[in-house]
């Protein structure tokens, strides 16, 4: 601790070149910064993710269900979809919006880009945090949603499958969000967000199990192209094993593939933007 006992001006040895810190140490420091910010913004996440799904649940389950317009058991189908939606869209938003800001006028990201760490790993750190935020969102929405629906399907043995699906969904959401934030010109961020996020929500089997779409083959095909579908089906299958659903292994396989793909596109677009 020479730093503590010598005056700061004279403290430094003049010849030694600074040592290069280990990769994991730098990576963890950058991760810690994002976690600190996440902790500070927990209530923001809550509002961001909680409001829309909870209103959806309220309208579909309490209002429409209460009047018999929608069947009672619809609530049970809907809750897993809402959890999946929260995981993916929270991750997407929580990486895209800050990145637009940090790369845009505040240029806050520069301090982290100048850390002795590969730029690719800075991007990976962002995905990790996005995934964790997705997980937090899913974990928050489950009790709130269950409270509103009035029942909480609980299959402890299936918890690992739910967790895995939610984490993959969060990772994918983060990857999509980062790619969009990096490749879109700032002026067009808003419109493109709507253009991308809205179809992800409405063709993602949040409100209905995928096998039930067999009466509408074209729509079934469209939904099969949406990664959101596999997050919804994965969570629903684990929480409601008796409802017809896409097999878990198919969900995990597709989600892993998509996760790998968005990792490549997002990290690449991040690095291209970071060093011009």
């Amino acid at each position: 601790m020479t730093d503590l006992d010598t005056p700061p001006v004279a403290a430094m040895s003049t010849t030694a070149t600074p040592a290069r810190p280990s990769t994991h140490r730098v990576f963890l420091a950058i991760l810690r910064r994002d976690l600190l910010v996440t902790a500070k913004e927990l209530w923001v996440i809550l509002v961001q993710v909680g409001l829309t799904p909870l209103f959806m649940l309220f309208v579909f389950v309490k209002v429409l269900g209460g009047q018999g317009i929608v069947a009672r058991n619809f609530a049970d189908l809907f809750l897993p979809g809402i959890i999946a939606l929260a995981a993916l869209t929270t991750a997407l938003q929580s990486v895209a919006l800050p990145l637009v800001k940090e790369f845009g006028f505040t240029r806050e990201i520069e301090d982290r880009l100048l850390a002795p760490l590969s730029t690719n790993l800075v991007a990976v750190g962002k995905l990790v945090v996005a995934m964790l935020r997705g997980l937090i969102a899913a974990a928050l929405i489950y009790p709130l949603g269950a409270l509103m629906v009035g029942s909480a399907p609980w299959q402890p043995g299936r918890l690992p499958m739910v967790l895995l699906t939610v984490l993959l969904g969060g990772w994918i959401g983060g990857g999509i969000g980062m790619t969009l934030a990096m490749i879109l010109p700032i002026q067009r961020i808003n419109i493109t967000f709507s253009l991308v996020v809205t179809p992800i929500i409405w063709t993602g089997c949040i409100h209905y199990p995928w096998p039930r779409l067999s009466s509408m083959p074209w729509f079934q095909t469209v939904t099969a192209l949406n990664p959101m579908t596999y997050v919804s089906e994965g969570v629903r299958g684990a929480m409601l094993p008796d409802v017809a659903h896409i097999p878990a292994w198919v969900c995990l396989l597709v989600l892993t593939g998509v996760a790998a793909l968005v990792t490549v596109t997002s990290v690449r677009s991040f690095s291209r933007r970071a060093v011009q």
Binding site: T106, D111, A115, P116
Partner: peptide
């Protein structure tokens, strides 16, 4: 740099501490 790129999500002290942590 020529422009202000301080981390707005952190306090001034945290700006110093985290920067140091980024450098090990």
């Amino acid at each position: 740099p020529q422009h202000n790129n301080l981390d707005r999500s952190l306090t001034p002290r945290q700006n110093l501490l985290y920067h140091a942590a980024y450098h090990g």
